[in-house]
Design a protein around this nucleic acid. Structure first.
Lengths: 365, 365
DNA sequence: GTGAAAGCGCTAACAT
DNA sequence: ATGTTAGCGCTTTCAC
C-alpha cells in the first residue's frame, strides 16, 4: 500500500481555492511572479524545498539519488534560482559594486573588464556605478549601492567625501580602493604611487639626456600629483630653462588627442627650449606627436614624448610611444580576490598592495 | 505601541509532533544582518512599517506629519532600504542587465555610459555582463542575469544562441536589443543597418571619384555585414580592378591600430591599384593612416580612408578622419526609456527604432 | 542525509 | 490616511 505521505509542503496558493464557506472570506493570496520556484522543483523531485536547495548549493550534502532527481527537475522546469530571495535569506547578495569616474575613455576599461570577468567566474555579478569627476551625485550612488547589500565595493580613481567614507565604513561592506595609494584606506587597497611615477619619469628623461622638460596634464587630482612630482624632480635635476618653472599645460579630463595638439602648440610658445614632454595620458601624447609632426618637429630627436597608460595602440605608433604602464588587469584580479576571499571569511593578511608601474621604453623618448 | 509579540501560532494541526509541550519552545532566532530596518525606522517614528514604507516610496500617500517623522527617523538612524527585500516583495528589482561583448575597446563605451547614467537617474542600477565574442559562457551569463530578476535586459552587439533567445523570452523580462536591426527581435530594438552603412560608404567613395576600393575589417558578424555590403555595392559601381573582387583584409576583434598598419601593408601587395580603403573601426583607420604616412603614401590624394565609429580623436587626426558615426548616446537613451516605460506599465507604440547613422565627411576621404 | 519551522526585510492586498 | 495580515522565494536553525 502506498504510504500516504502527508503534504509535507502545503501549497498555500492552492489553499485559496478551497471552499470559503467555513470561515470568513480568505484574503486573496498576493500574486506571485508566476515563475518556477524552488518549491516546484522540490515537489517534482519529491523532496522538501530545503533539500532541493542543498542539492543546488551544496551537492555534496545530499545523496546522489536526490541530487539526480533534483537536477532532472531543474532541467525539466527550466528553474532559475531567484538570487534576490536567496540573497535576502542568506545575507549574501553575490553582487559587487564597481565605481569608476566614467567608463568613457580607456583608463578604467581594463579594470572594469577584469573585475567583471573574474567576479563572474566566481559567481558574482558586477553592478556598475559612475561617480563622474565631480562629487555631485556621490550620495545617491552610495545609497543605491548600499541598498543592494553588495558583498563588496571596488572604488576606482575617485575622491570620496568624508561623509561617503563614513557611510561606507558604517555599512560594513568590504571595500577595495584602487588606482592610488591613499595614506588611510577605508578597508583594502590595490594601487600605485602617482608621485613615484612622476619622479621616475623625470629621472628617466634626465638619464636620457633631456635638459628642459614640460608637461601636458589633466586637471584631475591624480594626474596633478604625477605632474607635480614630475616637475619637482625635474627642477631638482635642473631640467629647467634658467629660473623658469616647468611649463605645464592643463587640460580637463577626460583627456583627448585634440588637447594634446593644443598643448604642444601652447608649450611651444611658452617654452621653446623644451626637449621633452610628459603627458598624463597616451591620448595626449598621441596628440602631441601628431602636432609635432605637422609642424615638422622630429620625435624623439628634437622632442621626447612620454605618455601614461600604455594603451593598446601606443606600441604601434610611429615612433613607438614611450609610456608608463599600469597593470589594470592585475589590479582587477587582486581586487576581485580580496572581495571573494573576504566573502569566504578568509583572513586577508596584507590588505594593502602596491602593484607599482613600469616605464615602457620605446622610441619616442 | 507595537511590541515584539511572539508570532501567533498558525492553526496547523496537521503537525504530527506529539511531544509538544504546553510552552512554545523558543528556537534561537536566526541572525539578522544587524542593520537598521524599516521596522526600526517605523518604531522610532511611531508608525507601522507599511506607513514608513509609504512615506519613503509614495510620500504623497501619507500625511505631512508622518512624512516628517519618518524622514527624521531615517536621518537619525542612517537607514538605507534593503532593495533585495523590496525587490523580492514587489517583484521589481530596479536592476537592468546590460550585456556587451566586452567593455574593452571604444565601441560600446558610449552606450554603457549612457545606460548607466540614464538608468541611475531613474533609480535603476546597471548590472554589467560581458558575453565575449564567442558564445561560450553565454548560458552561465544568462542564468546569472535571469536569477537577479532584472526589470530589463539590454543586449548589445551580440549574437545570441537560439537557446538563449528562448530562455530570455520565457523569463518574461523586457529585452532591448541594440546595435543592429535584426529581422525578428525578441522584444524591443534600437539599432541601425550595417548593410546600409556599407552600401552608403561605397556610394560616397564612388561619388568622390574613387575607382578601386579595398577593405580592412574585423571578423565579427556585424563588421562582416558592413564590409560585404560595401564590397557588393562597390562591385556594382565598378570600383574594382578588372575582374578581381574587392580586396579584403580580415582581422580579429577587437580591432587595433597595429592591425590597421598590417592591413594596409597586406592590401598594398594584393591590390596596388587601390585608391580607397574602408575600415571597420577608426582605430584600424588610424593604423592605415600611420602606415601610409610611414610609406610616404599621401592621404587623401593617393589613398582615401574611411573609418567607423567616429571616436573622439578622429576629428583631430592629420588629416581628419572621414568616418561613420553611430549615436551611441541616443541608442542608450532610447533603450533606457524603453525599459523605464515598460517597467511603468506604459504602452510602447513603436518598439523598433532605427537610429540610422551618418557619414562624417572630413579630410581623409 | 533530510525536513519542519521560522524568518530575511520588505510590500501587496485588504480592512478600517 | 493608516494599519493588519500574509506572503515574495529562499536559507538558517534546529531536530531527527
Amino acid at each position: 500500500m502506498p504510504q500516504n505521505v502527508p503534504p509535507a509542503h502545503p501549497d498555500r496558493r492552492a489553499d485559496t481555492r478551497n471552499d470559503d464557506s467555513a470561515e470568513p472570506r480568505r484574503r486573496a493570496s498576493r500574486k506571485s511572479a508566476g515563475g518556477i520556484t524552488l518549491r516546484d522543483v522540490a515537489q517534482l523531485a519529491g523532496v522538501a524545498p530545503i533539500t532541493a536547495s542543498r542539492a543546488l548549493n551544496t551537492p555534496s550534502a545530499v545523496s546522489p539519488k536526490v541530487l539526480q532527481k533534483v537536477k532532472e527537475a531543474v532541467e525539466r522546469t527550466g528553474y532559475v534560482p531567484n538570487l534576490l530571495a536567496g540573497g535576502l535569506a542568506s545575507n549574501k547578495s553575490r553582487l559587487v559594486a564597481v565605481v569608476v569616474p566614467t567608463v568613457i575613455g580607456p583608463v578604467f576599461q581594463e579594470i572594469v573588464h577584469t573585475l567583471t570577468e573574474s567576479l563572474a567566474t566566481a559567481g558574482y555579478q558586477v553592478m556598475l556605478g559612475q561617480s563622474g569627476y565631480e562629487n555631485s551625485r556621490e550620495d545617491a550612488l552610495l545609497e543605491a549601492i548600499i541598498g543592494r547589500r553588495p558583498d563588496g565595493v571596488v572604488l576606482t580613481g575617485i575622491m570620496r567625501s568624508a561623509e561617503a567614507r563614513k557611510r561606507l565604513l558604517a555599512s560594513g561592506i568590504p571595500v577595495v580602493e584602487t588606482w592610488d595609494l591613499t595614506p588611510t584606506p577605508i578597508d583594502m587597497l590595490v594601487g600605485f604611487s602617482h608621485d613615484d611615477i612622476g619622479r621616475e619619469v623625470a629621472r628617466y628623461l634626465h638619464g636620457a639626456g633631456r635638459r628642459v622638460v614640460a608637461v601636458v596634464g589633466g586637471k584631475d587630482e591624480r594626474s596633478q600629483r604625477r605632474m607635480n612630482a614630475f616637475a619637482r624632480e625635474a627642477t631638482t635635476l635642473g631640467m629647467v630653462a634658467g629660473e623658469a618653472p616647468v611649463a605645464m599645460h592643463h587640460v580637463t579630463a577626460p583627456t583627448t588627442l585634440g588637447q594634446g595638439r593644443k598643448g604642444l602648440a601652447d608649450l611651444l610658445e611658452r617654452q621653446p627650449a623644451m626637449d621633452a614632454i610628459f603627458c598624463s595620458s597616451d591620448l595626449l601624447a598621441l596628440g602631441v606627436m601628431i602636432e609635432a609632426q605637422s609642424r615638422g618637429i622630429r620625435i624623439p630627436e628634437q622632442l621626447a614624448v612620454v605618455g601614461f597608460g600604455d594603451l593598446e595602440f601606443s606600441r604601434d605608433l610611429q615612433p613607438q610611444l614611450t609610456t608608463v604602464r599600469i597593470d589594470g588587469t592585475g589590479i582587477g584580479q587582486r581586487a576581485a580576490r580580496f572581495i571573494i576571499d573576504r566573502a569566504a571569511g578568509l583572513e586577508i593578511d596584507e590588505p594593502i598592495v602596491d602593484v607599482g608601474f613600469s616605464i615602457i621604453k620605446r622610441q619616442s623618448a
